[in-house]
Nucleic acid binder design. Structure first.
Lengths: 201, 201, 201, 201
DNA sequence: GATGAATGAGCTTTCATTCAT
DNA sequence: TATGAATGAAAGCTCATTCAT
């Protein structure tokens, strides 16, 4: 009994991962369910016994991985301790790690952001995600501003700038996945918060 | 003779603009030639007398507008004079103007960047565009670094950061088109170059 | 042993009744085996342990109930005694009772009659049923004609008229199931045999 | 211009007739659009440029022929003149002609009547048709009753009986199309109105 | 050159049937 | 025996492209 449930779970994951891969590369319309099935190594009827429709599979391919990273954006204070500067540095490390290794998810997210009217439910979800993040680091930025670490000015401007920046990196340099490349951008991300110089400079 | 040529040119533009609008909102696959024809106010078959195929129309919809803005990214020194700081400020003004008003083009560009294998010719073209820009402002950044305006470090890192940033803004806040919103981001863009503070702060 | 056999019999009946209900309402094609299973309260695969195929289930759903009523059409003389007029009145009572309460069976029969080439075996069976009925009351009608009760003319014409009439009522007023409605048609059925007036008129 | 419109009209009729033929024989679900196309001698994409969907084609296949016969059922008084008896005889002649030659339409109608919930719009239309007919001959029957031609009793009972009768003939003896067969039933139809004998008897 | 009817490949989705458990 | 996951044939429908007018 246990084994059967596990097997089902496993097969579902197989399909979902195939979907994530293909959707992210080819987009919703040009991804064919037959291709997903082949990639997952199942017959294509099977895809429909695990996911109700092509649309439902797309939603799952975005929302389920989103859950895995949600906490690192919406509960920043829970994950990173220390003074505001340390928190931001740790957060940037974490986010850069996510953005550099999760290209597929970010591409999927971008597909949705680029077509709000086509995917209204998903768009709303992702829009909420963005807003939650901005809210989530608001007080940290304010504290950092008081301590003189960060630029004065609207915390949400800074938060939005930061998010746009890492998102922009991901989308503009789509082929770069190597860590050293991403490593270099961390200092730039930090500079959106305040006038930081690398110690060795 | 002249008039007829003009009329043809005009009809072609009608179709191309309709294509830009619809492709940018709906993507390549979900944009139907019939919809483009209707939006352009021409008959269905006419689209095919001006553009060889759906693919060709897509390429034109991206490459032709790209030409209009190319110069502002690849010949920065020709457009903006003064010391490096002034040049960068003017360039940011110009680019923000372009990015805020040309949402459609940026969305189209993103569609291509997100799917290199699907649109290899276009991708190569756009990849070259990015690299040209980075090269183009290299010497300006170096000069600014010498003058102490800008952060030390790889000029291309700074250039790439900047491009990613404005692109990220465009893509993350897809619905914002109002100028005031974009205005606020200019200072953040500048901060990727060096530790700047608004005068009123 | 006995109990197990009974249980099987019972489960089979459960499935068959569900099939009769759904086939009659939705027709052969639009009735899904999964729906039959759900209606019967058994699991999906179980249907196939009792009936070889969807086709076999359909045949059973028609032929088995048909057996229950066959005798009242093919052995009229055995069931109704008296002079021809009384026999016909009793027969009409009986048939109206059957047609008014067995809507499902009549709908199934009609599905077959309407598509001889699709269900050749079933059609032949039902066609034989009709002919048997016509033969079966032939002598009664002849006798009634001799006694002056019934119209002169071909007995089979009268028999066919009668059968068509009750069948037509059933099919034309598909929603009427109330007995009073059917009661009114009895006198009309009788009038196909001879010029009868209700006593109260 | 005229020619083109005519050609389109002609092709539409080709498709509609093929649909009528196949739908009536095979029913809605088992009729494949590909078969209709083949029967009509067009490619199957063409079917969809004349009719929006399989459903729409089905509705047209029923409602358009229905219009052709509607008047003979809903405007009985306009078509048949004379005393009530003559009107009824003429009407029966007309209706028998229609029912014997229009098997396909009657089969289609029956498909709808048998599945009200599947074809609600069509069912409503046809139900209205039946009621209109019953209303339409009401006064003629009443007049015939006053003149002593017809049985006393509810005119709508008689009207419904008559309609059920010819419908029942059509459906019970699906294969008979020869006129002589139908001719014999006319006297039986008339006997539902009153106690008539053929002159030669 | 402009039109839009005709075509048919290719897609998503359904569901009877099979079969391992 | 009972189950329900897996399969894949088959269907409706879309739409880029062709081409006769």
């Amino acid at each position: 009994m246990k084994t059967m449930k596990d097997k089902k779970e496993q097969k579902r994951a197989l399909i979902l991962n195939a979907a994530i891969k293909l959707y992210s590369v080819n987009g919703f319309e040009e991804t064919k369910i037959a291709d997903v099935a082949k990639e997952a190594g199942v017959s294509f009827g099977t895809v429909f016994s695990y996911f109700e429709s092509k649309n439902a599979l797309y939603e799952a391919a975005i929302l389920e991985p989103l859950e895995e990273i949600r906490s690192y954006f919406e509960n920043v204070e829970d994950h990173f301790q220390g003074d505001p500067l340390d928190v931001m540095k740790a957060m940037i490390d974490c986010h850069v790690e996510i953005f550099s290794t999760r290209k597929e998810l970010l591409l999927l997210i971008q597909q949705v952001l680029a077509r709000p009217s086509r995917f209204p439910n998903l768009f709303e979800e992702l829009d909420g995600f963005v807003n939650s993040f901005v809210d989530s680091i608001n007080s940290i930025i304010e504290e950092g501003q008081k301590l003189g670490y960060f630029y004065k000015g609207s915390p949400s401007l800074i938060a939005e700038s930061y998010l746009s920046f890492i998102n922009g990196i991901r989308l503009t340099f789509i082929d770069d996945e190597t860590n050293p490349v991403w490593e270099r951008f961390k200092i730039q991300a930090l500079r959106l918060f305040g006038p930081f110089y690398k110690s060795e400079e």
